[in-house]
C-alpha cells in the first residue's frame, strides 16, 4: 500500500459519499444519471465476488463492502425513494452499447478463462466507461450542479491516483497488470475534458455550464 493507492481509495470513497449526501440532503437526484449508478453497482458486484473466495485484509474487505453498500443505496435512492426527481428524459444513453461490447471483450481478453476472472475483467472494462451516461447527460442539459462536479472530480482523481500507484508498483514491486492499466488510462482520459472545465470554471466559483 503506497500513499497514491490510499489517497486514490479515499478519493473514490469521497466521491461516493458526496453523491449519496447530495441526494439525501436535497431529497433529489436531479442531474444524476441513474444509468451510470446502475453500471457502477454492476461493476462493484462483479468485481467483489472474491469476497466469498479469498480474504486479503480487513481494510480490503471493509472498503469493498462499503463501496457495494453505498452503490446499492445510491441506486435505491434514485430509482425508488426519490424516483419522482429522477430526470429520466435526459438520461438517454444506451447502456447496451457499453455492456455488450465490454462483455464480449472480457471473454476475449482476460488473464484466465474462468468465471470469476471473466467477471473481474468485465468489471474493470465496464468501470472505465461507466461514467459515460453521466457525462452524456451533462452534455445534453448543458450544465451540472456544482456538487455534482465535485463528485465527478473525486471520481476522476481516484483513477488518476491509481495510475501513479501503478507506476510506483511497477518500479518498486515489479508489479504490472496490463488489463487494469489500459482500462485505467482509458477511464482517466474520459475525465480530462471535465477536469479542464472543473479547474477553469468550478474552482473559480462559476457554475459548470457548456456553451449552447
Amino acid at each position: 500500500m503506497n500513499i497514491f493507492r490510499l489517497t486514490g481509495d479515499l478519493s473514490h470513497l469521497a466521491a461516493i459519499i458526496i453523491l449519496l449526501l447530495k441526494i439525501w440532503k436535497t431529497r433529489s437526484c436531479a442531474g444524476i444519471s441513474g444509468k451510470s449508478q446502475l453500471l457502477f453497482a454492476l461493476v462493484f458486484t462483479t468485481r467483489y465476488l472474491d469476497l466469498f473466495t479469498s480474504f486479503i485484509s480487513l481494510y480490503n474487505t471493509s472498503m469493498k463492502l462499503i463501496y457495494v453498500a453505498c452503490s446499492y443505496a445510491t441506486v435505491y435512492l434514485i430509482y425508488m425513494k426519490f424516483k419522482a426527481t429522477y430526470d429520466g428524459n435526459h438520461d438517454t444513453f444506451r447502456v447496451e452499447f457499453l455492456v455488450v461490447p465490454v462483455g464480449g471483450l472480457s471473454f476475449l481478453v482476460n488473464h484466465d478463462f474462468s468465471p470469476l476472472e471473466i467477471l473481474w475483467t468485465f468489471s474493470i472494462y465496464l468501470e472505465s466507461v461507466a461514467i459515460l451516461p453521466q457525462l452524456f447527460m451533462i452534455s445534453k442539459t448543458g450544465e451540472a450542479e456544482t456538487i455534482t462536479t465535485h463528485y465527478l472530480f473525486f471520481l476522476g482523481l481516484y483513477r488518476a491516483l491509481y495510475l501513479i500507484n501503478w507506476i510506483w508498483r511497477y518500479y518498486f514491486e515489479g508489479f504490472f497488470d496490463l488489463i487494469a492499466v489500459v482500462a485505467g488510462v482509458v477511464q482517466t482520459i474520459l475525465y480530462c475534458d471535465f477536469f479542464y472545465l472543473y479547474v477553469t470554471k468550478v474552482l473559480k466559483g462559476k457554475k459548470l455550464s457548456l456553451p449552447a
Binding site: 486479503i56 469493498k64 473481474w120 508489479f175 504490472f176 487494469a180
Partner: peptide
C-alpha cells in the same frame, strides 16, 4: 510471467 493480477486493489 511478470503479469500479476491486481486482486489486492479495489
Amino acid at each position: 510471467h511478470h503479469l500479476v493480477n491486481t486482486k489486492d486493489e479495489l
